[in-house]
């Protein structure tokens, strides 16, 4: 059986593109959302019951819809943003909507782990809420934030496999259409192998970066 390497490389690039772009946008959505989920909490910087309740509900809503359903459900929105509902770029939209709220939760968790004493010290030295977030909360949580984002990235690699449903291409799609549906075991083994290496690499990189920041 002949392996079409060109096809695999294209699929690899599609996966990398989908994951990178959706990660970028997901972080842009998730970071502020995660911060807001922390600071609007009771007793926190900008305590606001209503805002917290709404954000919390919205995040839970997105987190409860299975990705494959979400992908189809947001097609009109995707078309509005990308101009089409099919292709690699179109896959980025549902992926970012899937991952953003997930990242918000991970960031929320990391920020909540920061010693409340540090915030107290910040307030005692007259830091503004903005300074408390940027100079105290985030730096103290950074190491754990990076681990969270690593987890989210790996989640996106998994989600990208389903992007085939909207013609997004990528390694997962290749594994399904050629490896599974056409019984092409070699393609199956190669694509899964690449995905395994990718995930291992991402996790190791995340661990190293997080450790470097922690500086123990």
């Amino acid at each position: 059986m002949l392996v079409d390497w060109q096809q695999i490389v294209t699929a690899l690039w599609e996966t990398i593109a989908m994951v990178s772009f959706s990660l970028l946008f997901a972080v842009l959505i998730g970071l502020p959302l995660g911060i807001l989920l922390v600071v609007t909490r009771k007793g926190h910087l900008w305590e606001n019951k209503q805002v917290f309740a709404v954000l919390n509900a919205v995040v839970n809503l997105f987190r409860s819809v299975p990705f494959i359903i979400l992908m189809v459900a947001v097609i009109p929105f995707t078309r509005l943003i990308v101009g089409t509902s099919i292709g690699t770029a179109a896959a980025v939209v549902p992926m970012m909507l899937f991952s953003g709220p997930y990242i918000a939760r991970l960031i929320e968790n990391s920020l909540l782990e920061v010693d409340p004493g540090v915030m107290e010290a910040a307030q005692a030295m007259g830091a503004t809420p903005r300074q408390i977030i940027l100079r105290f909360l985030i730096p103290e949580a950074l190491s754990s934030l990076l681990l969270g984002i690593t987890i989210a990235t790996i989640g996106l690699v998994g989600a990208s496999a389903m992007a085939g449903a909207v013609g997004g291409g990528g390694l997962g799609d290749l594994a399904i259409t050629y490896g599974y549906q056409r019984f092409d075991t070699v393609v199956m083994v190669i694509t899964v192998g690449i995905l395994v290496i990718m995930v291992q690499g991402l996790q190791s990189t995340g661990n190293i970066l997080s450790k470097k920041i922690r500086r123990r």
Binding site: D115, G117, V118, E120, A121, A124, M125, F136, P139, E140, L142, S143, I213, R214, R215
Partner: peptide
């Protein structure tokens, strides 16, 4: 202000 548990930035 000085605290019991120091409250320093570990990072």
């Amino acid at each position: 202000m000085v605290f019991q548990h120091f409250n320093l930035l570990n990072s």
